[in-house]
Design a protein around this nucleic acid. Sequence first.
DNA 1: GTGGTCTAGACCACC
DNA 2: GTGGTCTAGACCACA
Lengths: 138, 138, 138, 138
Amino acid sequence: MYISVDPKSSTPLYVQIKEQMRLAVASGAIKPGEQVPTVRDLATQLRINLNTVARAYRELQSEGLLTSRQGSGTFVSPDAKAISQAESRRMVKQMLDRIAATARSLQIERDELLALVAEVMDKMSQQADTNPEVNGDE
Amino acid sequence: MYISVDPKSSTPLYVQIKEQMRLAVASGAIKPGEQVPTVRDLATQLRINLNTVARAYRELQSEGLLTSRQGSGTFVSPDAKAISQAESRRMVKQMLDRIAATARSLQIERDELLALVAEVMDKMSQQADTNPEVNGDE
Amino acid sequence: MYISVDPKSSTPLYVQIKEQMRLAVASGAIKPGEQVPTVRDLATQLRINLNTVARAYRELQSEGLLTSRQGSGTFVSPDAKAISQAESRRMVKQMLDRIAATARSLQIERDELLALVAEVMDKMSQQADTNPEVNGDE
Amino acid sequence: MYISVDPKSSTPLYVQIKEQMRLAVASGAIKPGEQVPTVRDLATQLRINLNTVARAYRELQSEGLLTSRQGSGTFVSPDAKAISQAESRRMVKQMLDRIAATARSLQIERDELLALVAEVMDKMSQQADTNPEVNGDE
DNA sequence: GTGGTCTAGACCACC
DNA sequence: GTGGTCTAGACCACA
């Protein structure tokens, strides 16, 4: 399954679900029109409460990523891919803005920061090479 | 005074105080050994609750940036500058890690991300030139 | 066939069936005394669940629009036309009441609201001229 | 107090709260910058659950009408009036669209519908004259 | 004190 | 079976 959550994280569970769902769609792991797990199924699988999943789904709906029909289930919207990519990119940019602000006040120079980013990304891709499939299943 | 807060910001007041205090030390605006305002003074000056300031000071103490001497007040630690810089750099790295992770799953390439970072930083420094006093918060 | 449904619409399927059935009678497309499709037939034709059609029929019966005779099928009531018109008019009035209430509290004037209604209706009839078959749902 | 709900209504409680809050702002009963009742207060006053109020507030927040700060309360946004009026008008138009559709399929003529609207609105304003202040308080 | 999150469990509407 | 709403009650973060 493409979703996993960390109950110890400080980011709320429903936000974790939203983020992962957006990524799953943006990366093509789930495709427009497909059905996503029922709230009950996902809740029991993640061992969290039904309402928490329902909230995540509900907010993804008002974001336009999902559509659900009573009695039949919840589905990925036809234009979900574009929405999720736009949304995710927006969030990356926002995070970058915040980083730039802190970096500036720390008088970290432009080039130093770029070097840091490169370093982090390279480290990541190496990890991905040795361990191509991370699965949060327990 | 070297501290100001924005009550409308989404970042908690006590975090804003901590950040500005670290920044003031890192940038040299306030030097090791100097005394910082009393909790009471800073609270009335910023028109916020006394407990909020107390919490910020308390956490900065356990971080090693501040030290309080019974009866005489709170002072900047001798090695505060190193501490604040190390702490801030640690935070930047952590944020970068998270960004890199999302970027990767969005299949944003290394170079594309670097370009984004450069863009954001350049925009920032331009703003700083025209408008030297900016509070980039929300 | 005089019935069609849109599974993507937010209005429940059984409501869509009821509305279209009432409309078919009100407009004369189907006449008192005629037989309507069996529950099973309509369900397979519309590719929806049998229970959904059954519910629509059941409620239309208790409304007096349809009557079923044991073993021979379901038929349009003799006085169906009057019933469907009365029922529909009742619903329009009810909706108008709610609109008027909100409009009033928004301090939308009587004449302004009338203008809005006229505008909407004119737009509709134009659309109907160019594209006679429209399902205005969702 | 400016809010009341009907637990028997088919429209969800949290939607009723949202609607009334929007109207309260649109009509000027609450002004930008003012604090709205705390979730706990409104919940006990309406004799409904805290979570239900919280949900209404949360959604009004993402709509831009309210802003809340942990620890200090929930407030009406500076530009709330424009938002609520736009939102309310949008909803009135949407309702009118639906009415027009039903009216058309019932072959209710343009002028007949306008007459109905006028009738309903006039009835309303008369009621308002004789009983200028309706208060849902029990 | 404030709002934010989460749980457990119930009931309803729809298919 | 599905999603949608509501409750009661708990715990946390913030001022």
